[in-house]
Design a protein around this nucleic acid. Structure first.
Length: 257
DNA sequence: CTGGGGAAGGGGCCC
DNA sequence: CGGGCCCCTTCCCCA
């Protein structure tokens, strides 16, 4: 599956107006809201609240047999699923025609592809990073017993139908932003995305005036206020606020190494 | 070049 | 079983 964050962003308003958000009286209430502060779904001309369609509308459960392969040793049932090659191709063409989160592929394809899951990356380093987690994932999925459900869009396998269904959403991308048409696998991903349109930032830093649309980004930001950061280089003991920074540090060669 | 912010993906857990 | 949320992770972009 193409990963949307590998393609150039096409949203225009990159920097929201922070001043609109600094008026929050109690930053802690914003950090730990009593209820998760759902972004208001756009209404009116920006679209209806149905930007993410209820599962019954777009996510047609009846299609499931066409989307996974039960590989149960008890029920081989080769005649069970539909012709999945045509199914998956029609589905992927559907993604290609607007359901995908990617812009219409003006760029050359990434040429470093994972042999396990077929994801593509633009550099060998990115691919090798991915393969670390991908192989761990395989081991997790199949520590000994063979998983029961296999995705028809990629080689991933799961030992529960629920897990597979969840995964398949990443192919079907049923949650569509009515503002920009971008599609997402889960409603809360769409809600987070909608905040990029509305500028809503419910997660405020208690130490400074910054606010964030995403709790994880706030968490990463909080590391920048900490003297000793979470991720430490084993060689030089330098600490970093993000694992990606530590990884970069290691890639570029720790000076103490 | 580096650090940090923004945006997004996905598995796991809980209800 | 499904939806919602948490948490971690990844990558891009920019100052």
């Amino acid at each position: 599956m193409p990963r949307s964050f590998l393609v150039k962003k096409y949203f225009t308003s990159k920097k929201p107006n922070y001043s609109e958000l600094e008026s929050q009286a109690d930053p802690f209430s914003a950090i730990v809201p009593e209820r998760y502060p759902l972004a208001e779904l756009p209404t009116g001309e920006n679209g209806s609240s149905e930007s993410c369609y209820p599962s019954g509308l777009v996510w047609n459960v009846g299609l499931l047999p066409a989307l996974y392969t039960p590989v149960s040793p008890i029920t081989p049932s080769p005649s069970g699923p539909l012709d999945l090659s045509s199914q998956s191709s029609s589905s992927s063409s559907e993604e290609d025609e607007g359901r995908t989160s990617d812009p219409p592929s003006p760029e050359p394809a990434d040429c470093f592809q994972c042999s396990r899951c077929s994801k593509s990356y633009s550099s060998p380093a990115a691919l090798s990073r991915h393969q670390l987690s991908c192989s761990r994932e395989d081991e997790r999925v199949a520590p000994g017993a063979r998983p029961a459900f296999r995705c028809k869009h990629c080689p991933k396998e799961y030992n529960s139908l629920g897990a597979l269904k969840m995964h398949i959403r990443s192919h079907t991308l049923p949650c569509v932003c009515t503002t920009c048409g971008k599609a997402f696998s889960r409603p809360w991903l769409l809600r987070g995305h909608i905040r990029t349109h509305t500028g809503e930032r419910p997660f405020s830093c208690p130490h400074c005036s910054r606010a964030f649309a995403d709790r994880s980004n706030l968490r990463a930001h909080l590391q920048t206020h900490s003297e000793v950061k979470k991720y430490q280089c084993g060689t030089c003991s330098r600490t970093f606020s993000r694992m990606s920074l530590l990884h970069k540090h290691n890639l570029t060669g720790c000076s103490s190494a």
